[in-house]
Simulated scan of single mutants.
Amino acid sequence: MMHNNINIQINGEPFNCAEPISLQFLLDYLDFNPEYVAVELNDTLLPEPLFQSTYLNDQDKLEVITIVGGG
């Protein structure tokens, strides 16, 4: 069985996947809490409700910013 490898960048670092995965799956895999991150995919800010339905493609560039509360 042949896998389609995809190569993406996460915060400027290369990341390889065996097959296309959803943004939600990737965030879970990397232990990011979707409620506390801002995600930019190819220079477009994505709202949290789209994480589950957004699939990553080869050469995508992802920026994940952790939102920290303070006071």
Rank of each mutant, 00 (worst) to 15 (best):
A18D: 13
E35I: 04
V68G: 08
Q52F: 02
F15M: 09
D60M: 04
Y55Q: 07
D58H: 12
L45Y: 09
S22A: 04
K61I: 05
L62S: 00
L26C: 12
L26D: 10
V37M: 09
V39E: 03
L50N: 03
E63Y: 02
F25V: 13
L50S: 08
I67N: 01
N16R: 09
L46W: 03
I8R: 14
I65C: 12
I10D: 10
E13M: 09
L23P: 15
Q59H: 15
Q52K: 12
G70F: 00
P14T: 10
Y36E: 12
P49N: 05
Q9I: 07
Y55V: 09
G12Q: 08
L50H: 02
T66A: 11
E40S: 03
Y36S: 13
Q59N: 15
P20S: 11
C17D: 04
N57Q: 14
G70L: 02
A38V: 05
M2I: 11
D60G: 09
L41M: 02
G71E: 07
L26I: 11
V68C: 12
P14A: 06
M2D: 07
T54V: 00
P34L: 04
M1E: 15
H3I: 10
E19P: 05
L26W: 08
N5F: 12
D43L: 08
L45P: 01
L41A: 01
D43G: 02
F51Q: 03
P20L: 01
N11F: 05
H3N: 13
P47M: 11
Q24L: 15
D58K: 07
L41Y: 03
E48V: 13
P49Q: 02
H3K: 08
N16M: 11
L30K: 15
K61N: 07
